[in-house]
């Protein structure tokens, strides 16, 4: 009789245990979600064929600076702008100089004698030792200065808020501005859905401006006439995806474009003609849905990516191909 009671008890215990295990297995609590049938799977676009990756990451260095805004290369040093200062860093990652900023920076470019820092609606011009020399602007109420570059006596300023490019001379006189319209009747010029609007002048003196809403790179005369353009609109590796890409870009010494994209974060190289050349860093190298790294290129063609999420400069070198 006693044994029978024990057996019944054990059977009941086993049944309860099985019930609890099945209940737990079928539970939909937050950490036990099954497959989401509506998941937007982008994994296939994050994988890049190894033969397309032409660069390798050779080093990186952490930055002790808050609120990273942009990076520029000039004369053997990197210039990194943050919340309240500019850090001048050697290519080995050593801090060379550091000077405070008066306004919150949005972008930076350095040339041999001056450092230009874009703020919300002004551009501050500093000497190489960090002394404020002059201020360009203020521009408009909606201005957001996202890129600056110089060529000889010309300063070009990209204003994502006003969707305009301003041209100044080195004395601070405004020489002109343009909206990227191809004619007086043109309905639109630069399409800028979010504050990503980059420009640069290559080593041959050609001014190229990103039209991010159209996934285009457009070549303009200094007066603002469109000369040529190329376009690459696709989520696949050879194109630009999303609403506003490339978010940043820089030139290699031969005039090739190094582009950085947001959304599906990746860095790629396009030939001067606009033909896709290869990949510098695949999406898996970056934080998912992270920020598009700002780009700088040195005289040797090494690429410096300012990783906003990891707060570091990542250095990429062209892989040596077997002879």
């Amino acid at each position: 009789m006693k044994n029978r009671a024990i057996i019944i008890f054990l059977i009941l215990l086993a049944a309860i245990s099985v019930f609890i295990i099945i209940g737990d297995f079928k539970s939909t609590r937050p950490d036990k979600q099954g497959e989401n049938p509506f998941d937007l799977n982008l994994d296939e676009y994050k994988d890049v064929a190894p033969e397309l990756i032409k660069y390798k990451e050779v080093k990186n260095f952490k930055l002790d600076i808050k609120g990273l805004a942009g990076i520029s290369y000039d004369n053997g040093n990197l210039y990194v702008a943050g919340d309240s200062s500019v850090q001048v860093i050697s290519l080995e990652g050593q801090l060379v100089n550091n000077f405070p900023l008066q306004d919150e920076p949005y972008c930076i470019v350095a040339n041999l004698v001056k450092i230009y820092v874009g703020n919300e609606n002004t551009v501050s011009v500093y000497s190489s030792d960090g002394k404020l020399l002059s201020t360009l602007g203020p521009f408009t109420e909606n201005s957001v200065i996202t890129s600056i570059d110089t060529w000889e006596e010309n300063i070009f300023i990209a204003d994502a808020g006003a969707r305009k490019v301003y041209r100044f001379d080195s004395d601070g006189n405004k020489l002109g501005e343009f909206e990227g319209k191809t004619g007086k009747d043109a309905q639109h010029g630069f399409i800028i859905p979010s504050p990503y609007f980059d420009l640069a002048v290559n080593t041959f003196g050609d001014l190229w401006i990103v039209n991010p809403g159209k996934h285009m790179l457009e070549n303009y005369t200094f007066e603002g006439s469109l000369r040529s353009f190329w376009k690459a609109s696709s989520i696949k590796i050879d194109g630009f995806s999303g609403c506003c890409n490339p978010a940043h870009y820089a030139f290699l010494p031969d005039g090739s474009f190094v582009t950085s994209e947001k959304g599906l974060v990746r860095i790629k190289v396009y030939k001067p003609s606009g033909e896709f050349d290869g990949v510098v860093a695949a999406p898996k190298k970056f934080k998912e849905e992270g920020y598009a790294p700002d780009i700088a290129v040195d005289d040797e063609g090494n690429i410096y990516a300012l990783d906003f999420d990891k707060k570091m400069v990542r250095v990429f070198e062209l892989k040596q191909t077997g002879l």
């Binding site: 937007l40 982008l42 676009y45 399409i191 859905p193 979010s194 809403g213 996934h215 609109s233 989520i235 696949k236 995806s241 999303g242 609403c243 506003c244 959304g263």
Partner: peptide
Amino acid sequence: LCGYCDLCGGYFKPD
């Protein structure tokens, strides 16, 4: 907030 984009990531399939 919308950019009124032609290539809308919320409307079009990636491919």
